[in-house]
């Protein structure tokens, strides 16, 4: 398992990166933290002619907060984000989901933009981005556009980024429910690749009822899925276990998962339902406790 030969370039400015991308198009791959890409290179599943290393381009690594909207440069290391007070303050769901990404060694090197642009169906951050209606800032030579999370993840390992386009940063707008969040997942072992994961953010009214809900599941399809029906039930239903159960069931029905060697489709539905209940219970439990 050794990678095929490639040409290596390490531009030091964003302009250079975009020029190189423009020049090489699909023959090039961007190397961010490498925690997803390098395994594929080692297995020779991908064999780009050129590797454009973003690691020496400091302008892509930043975290800022503007009126509660968190902006995260694509090359922000996951560990940096996890430890950032700005992230914890403005986007606690992201802070909660990050520890589920591999181990410390992976997050020390892996980047926020890297995992999002890689768009593995079992990755956590795409579900977070979808739940929070994140905005993806994509740049190519001479232009910039914004892609909504709902439009960004097309299928497994495929995003809406076009040839020559690079993910520059993501904006996580402050949702009202932003401060009542949970990230839960279950896998075939206690830590590692999940079978299903769920990102949840709830808006809790003064009387303790759910005023708004954002739920997104991963592992239930080729891309993360927003669970609108379940969200609606949580907002409309009376507080209590029946509503939770109904929301879970609605979530299970809203998805169309596959069977694979790790789990059956039936199980993925069951798990989605369970995780909706768990996530909401966790949030409400914390609410009650705080």
């Amino acid at each position: 398992m050794k990678p095929a030969p490639f040409e290596y370039v390490s531009p030091e400015s964003e302009e250079e990166v975009l020029d190189l991308l423009h020049q090489h198009g699909d023959d090039a791959r961007l190397l961010a933290g490498g925690q997803s890409l390098v395994p594929m290179l080692n297995l020779r599943i991908v064999q780009p002619e050129v590797i454009i290393d973003l690691g020496r381009c400091p302008s892509l690594a930043f975290i800022s907060a503007e009126n509660g909207t968190l902006v995260c440069g694509a090359m922000t290391r996951q560990m940096t984000a996890e430890r950032s007070p700005a992230v914890r303050e403005n986007c606690p769901l992201l802070a909660k989901a990050l520890p589920y990404l591999g181990g410390t060694a992976h997050r020390n090197r892996g980047t926020v933009g890297g995992t999002l642009a890689h768009a593995d169906r079992l990755a956590e951050l795409p579900a977070v981005a979808l739940a929070l209606d994140a905005e993806f800032i994509a740049r190519k030579s001479g232009s910039e556009r914004m892609i909504a999370a709902a439009d960004f993840f097309l299928t497994d390992l495929t995003t809406a980024l076009e040839e020559g386009e690079m993910l520059h940063s993501i904006r996580l707008p402050r949702a009202d429910g932003n401060h009542h969040t949970a990230f839960v997942e279950v896998g075939n072992r206690r830590h590692g690749f999940a079978i299903v994961g769920l990102a949840a953010a709830l808006e809790i009214a003064a009387d303790g009822t759910v005023a708004g809900a954002r739920l997104a599941a991963m592992g239930v399809g080729a891309a993360p899925v927003r669970l609108h029906e379940a969200e609606q039930i949580l907002v409309d239903g009376p507080a209590g276990d029946d509503t939770l159960r109904a929301a879970g069931e609605a979530a299970a029905q809203a998805i169309d998962p596959d069977d694979d060697i790790h789990a059956s489709a039936v199980y993925r539905r069951r798990l989605t339902s369970t995780l909706v209940r768990r996530a909401v219970q966790e949030i409400l439990g914390n609410e009650a406790g705080s």
């Binding site: 490498g34 390098v38 590797i51 290393d53 690691g55 560990m79 060694a105 020390n108 090197r109």
Partner: peptide, 13 residues
């Protein structure tokens, strides 16, 4: 100073 997987990095990088 931080842990990293040496199989997931190119020396040049």
């Amino acid at each position: 100073g931080r842990t990293a997987r040496s199989c997931l990095h190119f020396a040049v990088q």
